[in-house]
Design a binder for these strands. Sequence first.
DNA 1: TCGCTGATGTCAGCGACTGACATGCACGCT
DNA 2: AGCGTGCATGTCAGTCGCTGACATCAGCGA
Lengths: 187, 187
Amino acid sequence: MGRWQPGAQGRLQHAAMELIAERGYDRVTVAEIAERAGLTERTFFRHFTDKREVLFAGQEQFHAVILEALAATPVEMDALAAVVAGIAATGRWLDDERRPSSRARQAVIDAHPDLQERELIKLTRVSTAIAEVLRRRGVPDGEAALAADAGIAAFRLAFTAWVADPGEHDLPWHLDAAVEALRRVVA
Amino acid sequence: MGRWQPGAQGRLQHAAMELIAERGYDRVTVAEIAERAGLTERTFFRHFTDKREVLFAGQEQFHAVILEALAATPVEMDALAAVVAGIAATGRWLDDERRPSSRARQAVIDAHPDLQERELIKLTRVSTAIAEVLRRRGVPDGEAALAADAGIAAFRLAFTAWVADPGEHDLPWHLDAAVEALRRVVA
DNA sequence: TCGCTGATGTCAGCGACTGACATGCACGCT
DNA sequence: AGCGTGCATGTCAGTCGCTGACATCAGCGA
Protein backbone atom coordinates (compact mmCIF):
# COMPACT_ATOMS: atom_id res chain seq x y z
CA MET A 1 0.00 0.00 0.00
CA GLY A 2 1.14 3.45 -0.82
CA ARG A 3 2.16 6.18 1.47
CA TRP A 4 -1.21 7.77 0.94
CA GLN A 5 -4.72 6.45 0.67
CA PRO A 6 -5.54 6.15 -3.02
CA GLY A 7 -8.28 8.04 -4.80
CA ALA A 8 -7.59 11.44 -3.35
CA GLN A 9 -9.55 13.21 -6.06
CA GLY A 10 -12.58 11.00 -5.59
CA ARG A 11 -12.46 11.45 -1.84
CA LEU A 12 -12.39 15.19 -2.28
CA GLN A 13 -15.42 15.11 -4.56
CA HIS A 14 -17.27 12.88 -2.16
CA ALA A 15 -16.43 14.99 0.85
CA ALA A 16 -17.46 18.11 -1.03
CA MET A 17 -20.87 16.71 -1.97
CA GLU A 18 -21.46 15.57 1.59
CA LEU A 19 -20.58 18.86 3.18
CA ILE A 20 -22.51 20.85 0.60
CA ALA A 21 -25.57 18.70 1.19
CA GLU A 22 -25.23 19.30 4.91
CA ARG A 23 -24.60 23.03 4.88
CA GLY A 24 -24.86 24.48 1.38
CA TYR A 25 -22.11 25.41 -1.03
CA ASP A 26 -21.07 28.74 0.41
CA ARG A 27 -21.07 27.62 4.01
CA VAL A 28 -18.38 25.09 3.25
CA THR A 29 -14.71 26.06 3.02
CA VAL A 30 -12.13 24.34 0.92
CA ALA A 31 -10.13 23.63 4.05
CA GLU A 32 -13.08 21.72 5.50
CA ILE A 33 -13.53 19.66 2.35
CA ALA A 34 -9.86 18.79 2.37
CA GLU A 35 -9.94 17.90 6.04
CA ARG A 36 -12.86 15.53 5.64
CA ALA A 37 -10.99 13.89 2.78
CA GLY A 38 -7.91 13.56 5.02
CA LEU A 39 -5.93 16.02 2.96
CA THR A 40 -4.73 19.61 2.96
CA GLU A 41 -6.28 22.68 1.43
CA ARG A 42 -3.19 23.00 -0.75
CA THR A 43 -3.74 19.51 -2.08
CA PHE A 44 -7.32 20.30 -2.95
CA PHE A 45 -6.05 23.00 -5.28
CA ARG A 46 -3.67 20.56 -6.87
CA HIS A 47 -6.61 18.41 -7.94
CA PHE A 48 -9.06 21.16 -8.77
CA THR A 49 -8.14 24.56 -10.11
CA ASP A 50 -11.11 26.02 -8.34
CA LYS A 51 -13.49 25.45 -5.47
CA ARG A 52 -16.29 25.23 -8.04
CA GLU A 53 -14.48 22.73 -10.17
CA VAL A 54 -14.94 19.96 -7.63
CA LEU A 55 -18.56 19.83 -8.79
CA PHE A 56 -17.68 19.66 -12.46
CA ALA A 57 -15.02 16.97 -12.55
CA GLY A 58 -15.66 14.38 -15.20
CA GLN A 59 -17.12 16.87 -17.61
CA GLU A 60 -14.22 16.33 -19.99
CA GLN A 61 -15.34 12.76 -20.56
CA PHE A 62 -18.80 14.05 -21.19
CA HIS A 63 -17.36 16.50 -23.65
CA ALA A 64 -15.39 13.72 -25.32
CA VAL A 65 -18.40 11.42 -25.65
CA ILE A 66 -20.28 14.08 -27.56
CA LEU A 67 -17.43 14.88 -29.90
CA GLU A 68 -16.74 11.23 -30.64
CA ALA A 69 -20.36 10.52 -31.43
CA LEU A 70 -20.46 13.58 -33.62
CA ALA A 71 -17.35 12.49 -35.48
CA ALA A 72 -18.85 9.03 -35.99
CA THR A 73 -21.78 10.55 -37.80
CA PRO A 74 -21.94 10.37 -41.63
CA VAL A 75 -20.53 13.47 -43.28
CA GLU A 76 -23.51 13.98 -45.55
CA MET A 77 -25.72 14.31 -42.53
CA ASP A 78 -27.47 17.57 -41.87
CA ALA A 79 -25.43 19.74 -39.46
CA LEU A 80 -28.04 20.05 -36.74
CA ALA A 81 -28.96 16.38 -37.02
CA ALA A 82 -25.33 15.45 -36.53
CA VAL A 83 -25.00 17.70 -33.51
CA VAL A 84 -28.12 16.23 -31.96
CA ALA A 85 -26.87 12.72 -32.63
CA GLY A 86 -23.66 13.65 -30.83
CA ILE A 87 -25.49 15.05 -27.87
CA ALA A 88 -27.85 12.10 -27.75
CA ALA A 89 -24.84 9.93 -27.01
CA THR A 90 -24.78 11.41 -23.52
CA GLY A 91 -27.88 9.33 -22.91
CA ARG A 92 -25.60 6.36 -22.39
CA TRP A 93 -23.86 8.32 -19.66
CA LEU A 94 -26.84 10.02 -18.10
CA ASP A 95 -28.92 6.90 -17.66
CA ASP A 96 -31.71 6.25 -15.24
CA GLU A 97 -29.34 5.23 -12.50
CA ARG A 98 -27.65 8.59 -12.50
CA ARG A 99 -30.81 10.59 -12.48
CA PRO A 100 -31.01 11.09 -8.69
CA SER A 101 -27.44 12.26 -8.36
CA SER A 102 -27.84 14.51 -11.38
CA ARG A 103 -30.89 15.97 -9.74
CA ALA A 104 -29.06 16.63 -6.48
CA ARG A 105 -26.12 18.16 -8.25
CA GLN A 106 -28.31 20.35 -10.41
CA ALA A 107 -30.19 21.60 -7.37
CA VAL A 108 -26.91 22.79 -5.89
CA ILE A 109 -25.91 24.50 -9.11
CA ASP A 110 -29.29 26.14 -9.56
CA ALA A 111 -28.99 27.66 -6.11
CA HIS A 112 -25.61 29.31 -6.73
CA PRO A 113 -24.90 31.89 -9.42
CA ASP A 114 -21.18 31.12 -9.21
CA LEU A 115 -21.84 27.56 -10.18
CA GLN A 116 -24.27 28.52 -12.91
CA GLU A 117 -21.57 30.65 -14.45
CA ARG A 118 -19.22 27.73 -14.47
CA GLU A 119 -21.80 25.44 -15.98
CA LEU A 120 -22.56 27.91 -18.73
CA ILE A 121 -18.97 28.35 -19.72
CA LYS A 122 -18.52 24.59 -19.88
CA LEU A 123 -21.49 24.29 -22.20
CA THR A 124 -20.16 27.12 -24.30
CA ARG A 125 -16.83 25.39 -24.63
CA VAL A 126 -18.58 22.25 -25.81
CA SER A 127 -20.54 24.33 -28.29
CA THR A 128 -17.34 25.90 -29.59
CA ALA A 129 -15.73 22.50 -30.03
CA ILE A 130 -18.79 21.16 -31.84
CA ALA A 131 -18.82 24.15 -34.18
CA GLU A 132 -15.17 23.55 -34.96
CA VAL A 133 -15.85 19.96 -35.99
CA LEU A 134 -18.68 21.11 -38.22
CA ARG A 135 -16.45 23.68 -39.88
CA ARG A 136 -13.90 21.04 -40.69
CA ARG A 137 -16.71 19.21 -42.44
CA GLY A 138 -17.35 22.19 -44.63
CA VAL A 139 -20.22 23.79 -42.79
CA PRO A 140 -19.92 27.58 -43.14
CA ASP A 141 -18.71 29.48 -40.08
CA GLY A 142 -21.92 31.08 -38.95
CA GLU A 143 -24.06 28.05 -39.57
CA ALA A 144 -21.64 25.88 -37.64
CA ALA A 145 -21.84 28.14 -34.60
CA LEU A 146 -25.62 28.30 -34.79
CA ALA A 147 -26.10 24.59 -35.22
CA ALA A 148 -23.89 23.99 -32.21
CA ASP A 149 -25.69 26.59 -30.10
CA ALA A 150 -29.08 25.29 -31.17
CA GLY A 151 -28.04 21.79 -30.18
CA ILE A 152 -26.85 22.99 -26.79
CA ALA A 153 -30.09 24.92 -26.26
CA ALA A 154 -32.04 21.76 -27.00
CA PHE A 155 -29.82 19.85 -24.61
CA ARG A 156 -30.37 22.33 -21.82
CA LEU A 157 -34.11 22.11 -22.21
CA ALA A 158 -34.05 18.34 -22.49
CA PHE A 159 -31.76 17.95 -19.49
CA THR A 160 -33.99 20.11 -17.33
CA ALA A 161 -37.02 18.10 -18.33
CA TRP A 162 -35.20 14.83 -17.79
CA VAL A 163 -34.08 15.79 -14.31
CA ALA A 164 -37.61 16.79 -13.39
CA ASP A 165 -39.11 13.70 -14.96
CA PRO A 166 -39.83 11.04 -12.30
CA GLY A 167 -38.71 8.30 -14.66
CA GLU A 168 -41.09 8.08 -17.55
CA HIS A 169 -38.73 9.00 -20.35
CA ASP A 170 -34.99 8.91 -20.85
CA LEU A 171 -32.77 11.75 -21.93
CA PRO A 172 -32.71 10.97 -25.68
CA TRP A 173 -36.50 11.03 -25.65
CA HIS A 174 -36.54 14.48 -24.10
CA LEU A 175 -33.90 15.58 -26.55
CA ASP A 176 -36.04 14.51 -29.50
CA ALA A 177 -38.96 16.42 -28.06
CA ALA A 178 -36.79 19.51 -27.66
CA VAL A 179 -35.54 19.32 -31.23
CA GLU A 180 -39.09 18.99 -32.50
CA ALA A 181 -40.06 22.07 -30.53
CA LEU A 182 -37.04 23.88 -31.93
CA ARG A 183 -38.06 23.09 -35.48
CA ARG A 184 -41.54 24.31 -34.72
CA VAL A 185 -40.16 27.57 -33.35
CA VAL A 186 -37.68 28.34 -36.08
CA ALA A 187 -39.77 27.09 -38.98
CA MET B 1 -20.11 71.75 -4.39
CA GLY B 2 -20.61 68.56 -2.47
CA ARG B 3 -18.33 66.99 -0.04
CA TRP B 4 -17.25 64.52 -2.72
CA GLN B 5 -16.55 64.75 -6.41
CA PRO B 6 -19.65 63.60 -8.28
CA GLY B 7 -19.81 60.62 -10.60
CA ALA B 8 -17.96 58.17 -8.43
CA GLN B 9 -19.29 55.19 -10.32
CA GLY B 10 -18.29 56.60 -13.69
CA ARG B 11 -14.82 57.45 -12.40
CA LEU B 12 -14.39 53.91 -11.16
CA GLN B 13 -15.39 52.48 -14.53
CA HIS B 14 -13.06 54.84 -16.32
CA ALA B 15 -10.16 54.10 -14.01
CA ALA B 16 -10.78 50.40 -14.38
CA MET B 17 -10.72 50.51 -18.17
CA GLU B 18 -7.54 52.57 -18.15
CA LEU B 19 -5.68 50.30 -15.79
CA ILE B 20 -6.87 47.16 -17.53
CA ALA B 21 -5.74 48.55 -20.87
CA GLU B 22 -2.35 49.28 -19.36
CA ARG B 23 -1.76 46.04 -17.52
CA GLY B 24 -4.51 43.51 -18.20
CA TYR B 25 -7.46 42.56 -16.05
CA ASP B 26 -5.78 40.27 -13.58
CA ARG B 27 -2.76 42.48 -12.99
CA VAL B 28 -5.00 45.20 -11.65
CA THR B 29 -6.31 45.15 -8.08
CA VAL B 30 -9.52 46.70 -6.92
CA ALA B 31 -7.56 48.86 -4.53
CA GLU B 32 -5.63 50.33 -7.45
CA ILE B 33 -8.77 51.07 -9.41
CA ALA B 34 -10.27 52.79 -6.41
CA GLU B 35 -7.12 54.77 -5.78
CA ARG B 36 -6.97 56.07 -9.34
CA ALA B 37 -10.61 57.11 -8.99
CA GLY B 38 -9.77 58.92 -5.75
CA LEU B 39 -11.79 56.51 -3.66
CA THR B 40 -11.41 53.55 -1.36
CA GLU B 41 -11.54 49.85 -2.10
CA ARG B 42 -14.55 49.63 0.18
CA THR B 43 -16.35 52.24 -1.85
CA PHE B 44 -15.66 50.32 -5.04
CA PHE B 45 -17.60 47.42 -3.58
CA ARG B 46 -20.47 49.72 -2.71
CA HIS B 47 -20.86 50.59 -6.38
CA PHE B 48 -20.10 47.19 -7.87
CA THR B 49 -20.88 43.88 -6.23
CA ASP B 50 -17.88 42.39 -7.93
CA LYS B 51 -14.56 43.25 -9.49
CA ARG B 52 -15.91 41.91 -12.79
CA GLU B 53 -19.06 43.93 -12.58
CA VAL B 54 -17.24 47.16 -13.27
CA LEU B 55 -17.03 46.01 -16.88
CA PHE B 56 -20.71 45.15 -17.13
CA ALA B 57 -22.40 48.21 -15.69
CA GLY B 58 -25.20 49.50 -17.83
CA GLN B 59 -26.26 46.05 -18.93
CA GLU B 60 -29.58 46.44 -17.14
CA GLN B 61 -30.56 49.21 -19.54
CA PHE B 62 -29.58 46.96 -22.37
CA HIS B 63 -31.72 44.25 -20.89
CA ALA B 64 -34.60 46.69 -20.51
CA VAL B 65 -34.37 47.93 -24.11
CA ILE B 66 -34.78 44.39 -25.41
CA LEU B 67 -37.72 43.59 -23.18
CA GLU B 68 -39.51 46.82 -24.01
CA ALA B 69 -39.10 46.30 -27.72
CA LEU B 70 -40.30 42.74 -27.34
CA ALA B 71 -43.34 43.87 -25.41
CA ALA B 72 -44.10 46.46 -28.08
CA THR B 73 -44.33 43.74 -30.67
CA PRO B 74 -47.77 42.58 -31.90
CA VAL B 75 -49.02 39.53 -30.02
CA GLU B 76 -49.88 37.58 -33.14
CA MET B 77 -46.27 37.76 -34.22
CA ASP B 78 -44.26 34.60 -34.49
CA ALA B 79 -42.30 33.95 -31.27
CA LEU B 80 -38.84 33.95 -32.80
CA ALA B 81 -39.64 36.97 -34.96
CA ALA B 82 -40.73 38.86 -31.87
CA VAL B 83 -37.57 37.93 -30.00
CA VAL B 84 -35.43 39.03 -32.91
CA ALA B 85 -37.32 42.30 -33.15
CA GLY B 86 -36.63 42.86 -29.46
CA ILE B 87 -32.95 42.14 -29.84
CA ALA B 88 -32.71 44.28 -32.95
CA ALA B 89 -33.64 47.25 -30.80
CA THR B 90 -30.16 47.11 -29.30
CA GLY B 91 -29.00 48.45 -32.65
CA ARG B 92 -30.05 51.88 -31.46
CA TRP B 93 -27.75 51.44 -28.50
CA LEU B 94 -24.86 49.71 -30.18
CA ASP B 95 -24.47 52.19 -33.00
CA ASP B 96 -21.44 52.90 -35.09
CA GLU B 97 -20.07 55.34 -32.58
CA ARG B 98 -19.88 52.70 -29.90
CA ARG B 99 -18.23 50.13 -32.07
CA PRO B 100 -14.62 50.91 -31.08
CA SER B 101 -15.30 50.84 -27.37
CA SER B 102 -17.35 47.68 -27.75
CA ARG B 103 -14.43 46.16 -29.57
CA ALA B 104 -11.98 47.11 -26.84
CA ARG B 105 -14.25 45.85 -24.12
CA GLN B 106 -14.89 42.59 -25.91
CA ALA B 107 -11.19 42.01 -26.37
CA VAL B 108 -10.73 42.24 -22.61
CA ILE B 109 -13.60 39.84 -21.99
CA ASP B 110 -12.40 37.38 -24.59
CA ALA B 111 -9.03 37.24 -22.87
CA HIS B 112 -10.41 36.36 -19.45
CA PRO B 113 -12.48 33.28 -18.63
CA ASP B 114 -13.79 34.96 -15.48
CA LEU B 115 -15.30 37.72 -17.56
CA GLN B 116 -16.66 35.32 -20.15
CA GLU B 117 -18.50 33.53 -17.40
CA ARG B 118 -20.08 36.75 -16.28
CA GLU B 119 -21.05 37.68 -19.81
CA LEU B 120 -22.66 34.32 -20.39
CA ILE B 121 -24.74 34.46 -17.26
CA LYS B 122 -25.95 37.94 -18.17
CA LEU B 123 -27.05 36.69 -21.58
CA THR B 124 -28.73 33.72 -19.97
CA ARG B 125 -30.64 36.00 -17.64
CA VAL B 126 -31.85 38.00 -20.61
CA SER B 127 -32.86 34.79 -22.32
CA THR B 128 -34.81 33.71 -19.25
CA ALA B 129 -36.61 37.02 -19.08
CA ILE B 130 -37.47 36.87 -22.78
CA ALA B 131 -38.84 33.36 -22.40
CA GLU B 132 -40.99 34.52 -19.53
CA VAL B 133 -42.55 37.26 -21.65
CA LEU B 134 -43.26 34.76 -24.39
CA ARG B 135 -44.93 32.41 -21.95
CA ARG B 136 -47.22 35.15 -20.76
CA ARG B 137 -48.23 35.52 -24.39
CA GLY B 138 -49.26 31.92 -24.53
CA VAL B 139 -46.18 30.39 -26.08
CA PRO B 140 -45.68 26.90 -24.61
CA ASP B 141 -42.89 26.52 -22.05
CA GLY B 142 -40.33 24.67 -24.11
CA GLU B 143 -40.87 26.70 -27.23
CA ALA B 144 -40.52 29.91 -25.28
CA ALA B 145 -37.16 28.84 -23.87
CA LEU B 146 -35.94 27.72 -27.27
CA ALA B 147 -37.07 30.83 -29.10
CA ALA B 148 -35.27 32.94 -26.51
CA ASP B 149 -32.10 30.86 -26.68
CA ALA B 150 -32.17 30.87 -30.46
CA GLY B 151 -32.50 34.63 -30.46
CA ILE B 152 -29.57 34.97 -28.08
CA ALA B 153 -27.48 32.63 -30.19
CA ALA B 154 -28.20 34.76 -33.24
CA PHE B 155 -27.31 37.86 -31.24
CA ARG B 156 -24.00 36.41 -30.14
CA LEU B 157 -23.06 35.56 -33.69
CA ALA B 158 -24.25 38.92 -35.01
CA PHE B 159 -22.45 40.84 -32.28
CA THR B 160 -19.18 39.06 -32.97
CA ALA B 161 -19.48 39.80 -36.66
CA TRP B 162 -20.43 43.41 -35.99
CA VAL B 163 -17.47 43.98 -33.72
CA ALA B 164 -15.12 42.52 -36.31
CA ASP B 165 -16.75 44.44 -39.15
CA PRO B 166 -14.73 47.57 -40.01
CA GLY B 167 -17.91 49.55 -40.56
CA GLU B 168 -19.71 48.18 -43.56
CA HIS B 169 -22.87 46.97 -41.86
CA ASP B 170 -24.69 47.79 -38.66
CA LEU B 171 -25.78 45.38 -35.97
CA PRO B 172 -29.36 44.83 -37.18
CA TRP B 173 -27.98 43.87 -40.57
CA HIS B 174 -25.72 41.25 -39.01
CA LEU B 175 -28.63 40.07 -36.91
CA ASP B 176 -30.76 39.51 -39.99
CA ALA B 177 -27.96 37.56 -41.57
CA ALA B 178 -27.64 35.41 -38.47
CA VAL B 179 -31.35 34.68 -38.37
CA GLU B 180 -31.30 33.68 -42.00
CA ALA B 181 -28.42 31.32 -41.30
CA LEU B 182 -30.34 29.94 -38.34
CA ARG B 183 -33.38 29.20 -40.48
CA ARG B 184 -31.13 27.49 -42.99
CA VAL B 185 -29.61 25.33 -40.28
CA VAL B 186 -32.77 24.32 -38.49
CA ALA B 187 -34.96 23.96 -41.56
C1' DT C 1 -30.35 75.43 15.18
C1' DC C 2 -30.69 70.63 15.26
C1' DG C 3 -31.10 66.15 13.88
C1' DC C 4 -31.29 63.05 10.02
C1' DT C 5 -29.63 61.08 5.63
C1' DG C 6 -26.46 59.22 2.58
C1' DA C 7 -22.02 58.68 0.48
C1' DT C 8 -17.69 57.82 2.00
C1' DG C 9 -13.69 56.34 5.12
C1' DT C 10 -11.50 53.10 8.51
C1' DC C 11 -10.50 48.75 10.39
C1' DA C 12 -10.47 44.07 11.18
C1' DG C 13 -11.19 39.68 9.39
C1' DC C 14 -12.43 35.50 6.43
C1' DG C 15 -11.71 32.62 2.69
C1' DA C 16 -10.01 31.57 -2.06
C1' DC C 17 -5.91 30.90 -4.29
C1' DT C 18 -0.55 30.76 -5.23
C1' DG C 19 4.55 30.21 -5.07
C1' DA C 20 8.47 28.18 -2.84
C1' DC C 21 10.32 24.77 -0.50
C1' DA C 22 10.42 20.37 2.34
C1' DT C 23 9.25 15.43 2.94
C1' DG C 24 9.36 10.62 2.29
C1' DC C 25 7.45 6.25 0.06
C1' DA C 26 7.90 3.53 -4.21
C1' DC C 27 10.07 2.08 -7.99
C1' DG C 28 13.78 1.39 -11.21
C1' DC C 29 18.61 1.03 -11.96
C1' DT C 30 23.02 -0.75 -10.88
C1' DA D 1 21.20 -4.48 -1.19
C1' DG D 2 22.02 0.09 -1.93
C1' DC D 3 21.05 4.35 -4.40
C1' DG D 4 18.82 8.00 -6.73
C1' DT D 5 14.86 9.93 -8.56
C1' DG D 6 9.92 10.97 -9.22
C1' DC D 7 5.75 12.30 -7.53
C1' DA D 8 1.89 13.14 -4.47
C1' DT D 9 1.54 15.45 -0.46
C1' DG D 10 2.59 18.75 3.50
C1' DT D 11 4.05 23.36 5.33
C1' DC D 12 4.30 28.26 5.34
C1' DA D 13 3.72 32.75 4.13
C1' DG D 14 1.54 35.92 1.46
C1' DT D 15 -1.86 38.40 -1.91
C1' DC D 16 -6.30 39.66 -3.15
C1' DG D 17 -11.38 39.62 -3.37
C1' DC D 18 -14.97 40.66 -0.51
C1' DT D 19 -17.80 41.78 3.95
C1' DG D 20 -19.58 43.57 8.46
C1' DA D 21 -19.43 47.11 11.91
C1' DC D 22 -18.73 51.47 13.06
C1' DA D 23 -17.18 56.42 12.36
C1' DT D 24 -17.44 60.85 9.79
C1' DC D 25 -19.40 64.83 8.09
C1' DA D 26 -21.62 67.95 4.23
C1' DG D 27 -26.24 69.19 3.12
C1' DC D 28 -31.01 69.51 3.78
C1' DG D 29 -35.44 69.92 5.86
C1' DA D 30 -38.07 70.82 10.22
